[in-house]
């Protein structure tokens, strides 16, 4: 069963340079999320990867309706939630929960763990789970309920944030860079916890990260984002073993491996994402770019089953085009 179906989702932000709408020109708008389409099956984990500013966070926040979408459609368990009002949305929220990047900011510092999680239980009238139970589920001692967030370490705080989402037994957990502020030993603990949650409750997940190694560890499928667009989509293992889009190749290159033959090669241009060129948004950084790339924007095309890429190189006439 499809848990979530996102079609043509677009979010446009106005650049602050021109606040008055009538004076705005085309380039004063930033497409943070540009025509994104994908879906998630039950118990599937989707990874979203890309560099800072590529629109990963905006995408997932729009999906859980913390940011209002401009165009497109979000269907959650067959129900269109794109434009329903907050009152209709609230009872559905228990089925999709988001966990944020910074556990120092996402937990209220003036309240005890008991209240932080207890509020959620009260609001959604949950009667089969207690705060102590859910703390145990995420691997924290029961007596933590009387603690304040500042008394916990970063990893423990992130576990509390997971517990707050988990207490509702959601169908979908959206995890937005939840391990990027943790060191690697703590990180692996959190990732294993998520894997266990997925197995135990058949939860689906959207896992956002800029680190392909993390995505590789946790996700089944991956969406590679660049400048608001999905540039490559496929089974995580296949995408990493055989990256098609030049940007995905750069991402794969940039993960250090332990054997010490790491050699990230990349040209750098500061204006990278915000001032997008016409044509393919990646063209000015792409080592393979040819004339077509500077003129028209590539669409996401199907390469093989489940594998999609948005790159002219794989279209007819492109360097890597293979017919049939």
């Amino acid at each position: 069963m499809k848990i979530l179906r996102v079609s043509n989702l677009t979010k446009i932000f106005a650049q602050p340079s021109r606040m008055l709408t009538i004076f705005r020109r085309e380039k004063d708008f930033l497409k943070a999320v540009d025509n994104v389409t994908f879906d998630i099956e039950e118990n599937e984990v989707i990874g979203v990867v890309g560099e800072s500013g590529s629109g990963k966070t905006t995408l997932v926040k729009t999906i859980v309706r913390l940011i209002e979408p401009d165009y497109g459609k979000i269907e959650f368990m067959g129900k269109d939630i794109t434009h329903i009002n907050q009152k209709q949305l609230r009872p559905l929220r228990r089925h999709f929960q988001i966990i944020f990047q910074n556990p120092f900011l996402s937990l209220n510092p003036t309240r005890k763990i008991k209240d932080i999680i207890g509020d959620v239980i009260k609001l959604h009238k949950i009667d089969n789970v207690t705060v102590e139970q859910v703390l145990e589920d995420v691997g924290l001692p029961k007596d933590y309920i009387y603690r304040y967030p500042h008394q916990l370490s970063g990893g423990e705080r992130q576990r509390v944030a997971i517990a707050r989402a988990l207490v509702l037994r959601p169908k979908l957990i959206v995890a937005d860079e939840i391990t990027s502020s943790l060191d690697i030993v703590t990180q692996i603990g959190i990732l294993n916890l998520l894997k266990e949650i997925r197995k135990r409750w058949m939860t689906s997940m959207i896992f956002v990260s800029h680190d392909l190694a993390v995505i590789n560890y946790i996700s089944d499928r991956v969406l590679v984002m660049y400048a608001g667009k999905v540039v490559e989509e496929g089974v995580t293992r296949e995408v990493i073993d055989n990256p098609r889009h030049p940007y995905t190749q750069a991402l794969v290159d940039s993960v250090p491996d332990i054997e010490g033959n790491w050699n990230p090669k990349y040209s750098y241009d500061e204006k990278d994402i915000v001032s997008v060129p016409p044509g393919c948004k990646f063209s000015h950084r792409c080592p393979f770019a040819f004339d077509k790339c500077y003129k028209s924007e590539p669409n996401l095309i199907q390469l093989s089953t489940g594998r999609k890429v948005a790159c002219h190189l794989y279209e007819e006439g492109g360097q890597f085009f293979r017919s049939g």
Binding site: V185, N216, I240, V255, D257
Partner: peptide, 12 residues
């Protein structure tokens, strides 16, 4: 322990 918690791509 540090080595075992390290995530890499294990590319083929």
């Amino acid at each position: 322990t540090l080595l075992s918690s390290l995530l890499t791509l294990n590319r083929r």
